[in-house]
């Protein structure tokens, strides 16, 4: 596939007439790989999110343009699936399991403890950009419920105390100075 844009048929809607440099060059190999495989929009979006952390409007517009589909189609597919995010996330993405077993074993209590400690609500990111809290349907570790995942690590049999301890440790690891100040305060 060619990534060149043509002034008459540019269509990105940003009024740039195609003279802007492509800010998404890292995505080129992905677009090339899927160019001849029909039905690959979801896979392209997944790779794009892996590369850029979230799907910005500009990124979705770029994908629409390169795959010769409408931005509405791209946005429609992206918003249908829970995996896709449209805002940047914190350094640590907390995925709190809200499956049945976790619910029965107190995931609400864990959620309250996280919200209390970080002072954010579900879906929000802390002001320091460290943590984002997302509820997810089921992580499939039901026998260790309640469970959460932070980035690639899974934590099980959570209690209020345990979850606060885990978050405090991560906070310290990321920014020791700030954490000490908080304790002294």
């Amino acid at each position: 596939m060619s990534h060149e844009t043509n002034e008459h048929d540019h269509g990105c809607g940003c009024g740039c007439h195609g003279e802007k440099t492509n800010p998404f060059t890292e995505l080129n190999p992905v677009l090339d790989h899927y160019a001849d495989i029909p039905g690959s929009l979801i896979s392209i979006l997944q790779k794009a999110q892996e590369l850029y952390g979230f799907l910005s409007v500009e990124l979705m517009r770029h994908i629409a343009l390169e795959t010769h589909t409408s931005i509405a189609k791209v946005y429609g597919v992206a918003t249908f699936y829970t995996q896709f995010r449209f805002e940047p996330v914190g350094k640590y993405l907390i995925m709190l399991c809200q499956g049945t077993a976790c619910h029965v074993n107190g995931s609400k209590m864990v959620e309250e403890a996280i919200m209390d400690y970080l002072d954010i609500k579900e879906g929000e990111t802390t002001a320091d950009g460290l943590f984002t809290l997302n509820n997810v349907a089921c992580l499939g570790c039901c026998s260790l419920s309640p469970v959460m995942m932070i980035n690639d690590d899974t934590y099980g049999q959570l209690t209020k105390e345990k979850v606060t301890h885990i978050l405090a440790e991560l906070k310290e690891k990321a920014d020791p100075l700030q954490a000490t100040q908080e304790v002294t305060a």
């Binding site: 049945t100 077993a101 619910h103 349907a137 089921c138 499939g140 039901c142």
Partner: peptide, 11 residues
């Protein structure tokens, strides 16, 4: 696509 919350047989 084992989506039932509370099930992990397929996983």
């Amino acid at each position: 696509d084992e989506g039932d919350p509370g099930a992990f047989m397929d996983r």
